[in-house]
Simulated assay, not measured.
Amino acid sequence: MSSKELYQHTKQIQLNEWKTGMILFRTQALAARTHVQVELGKQVKILEGKLEEGKTKLEELHKASGSNFESTKKGFEITWESISSTFEDTAEKFKATA
């Protein structure tokens, strides 16, 4: 084998090693992406649950009257703060992945 052929062969081996490394990186990136998608899906499910809870509390608030209204309103405001916080957390997680 000539020095030129040896050089080319050595470079081809290195190129193949880098290609193998790149495939490994791509696989890891896809795995991370899937993991991120799963985590974001979980966060969306939590938010959906909070929104459903908020809908229920809003219906309770709508039906409440008199002194019952004030106590229902307090419970509603606690739920509202929880929804607001969960929404902000979800938005931040989506921004972080963008």
Rank of each mutant, 00 (worst) to 15 (best):
M1A: 15
S3E: 11
K4H: 14
E5P: 02
L6A: 13
L6N: 08
Y7S: 07
Q8W: 06
H9C: 04
H9Q: 12
T10S: 13
Q12N: 04
I13F: 04
Q14I: 13
L15I: 11
N16V: 06
E17M: 13
W18Y: 12
T20E: 13
G21D: 14
G21H: 12
I23P: 01
I23W: 15
I23S: 15
I23F: 14
I23L: 11
L24N: 15
L24H: 14
F25L: 12
T27W: 02
T27H: 03
A29V: 12
L30F: 13
A31S: 11
A32L: 10
R33C: 08
R33V: 03
H35T: 12
V36A: 13
V38F: 06
V38T: 15
V38P: 06
E39I: 00
E39L: 04
E39R: 01
E39T: 00
L40I: 03
L40F: 02
K42W: 07
Q43G: 02
Q43E: 09
V44Y: 00
V44I: 04
V44A: 12
K45M: 12
I46G: 05
L47M: 03
E48Y: 10
G49T: 11
G49W: 08
K50N: 07
L51S: 01
L51F: 04
E52Y: 12
E52V: 08
G54A: 05
T56F: 08
T56N: 11
K57S: 09
E59N: 05
E59L: 05
E59D: 12
H62A: 08
K63P: 00
K63M: 14
A64E: 01
S65N: 10
S65T: 01
G66T: 03
G66D: 04
G66K: 02
N68V: 13
N68R: 13
F69L: 02
E70I: 13
E70M: 06
S71C: 03
S71H: 10
T72Y: 02
K73H: 02
K73C: 05
K73G: 00
K73E: 08
K74D: 02
F76I: 03
F76C: 00
F76R: 06
F76Y: 13
E77T: 01
I78N: 06
I78P: 03
I78R: 12
T79H: 09
T79S: 15
E81R: 08
E81I: 03
S82G: 07
S84P: 05
S85E: 09
S85N: 13
S85W: 00
T86A: 15
T86M: 03
T86L: 00
F87V: 03
E88N: 15
E88F: 07
E88C: 09
T90G: 02
T90D: 04
E92Q: 14
E92R: 08
E92K: 15
K93A: 00
K95N: 07
K95Y: 04
K95L: 03
K95S: 07
A96F: 06
T97L: 02
A98K: 10
A98T: 09
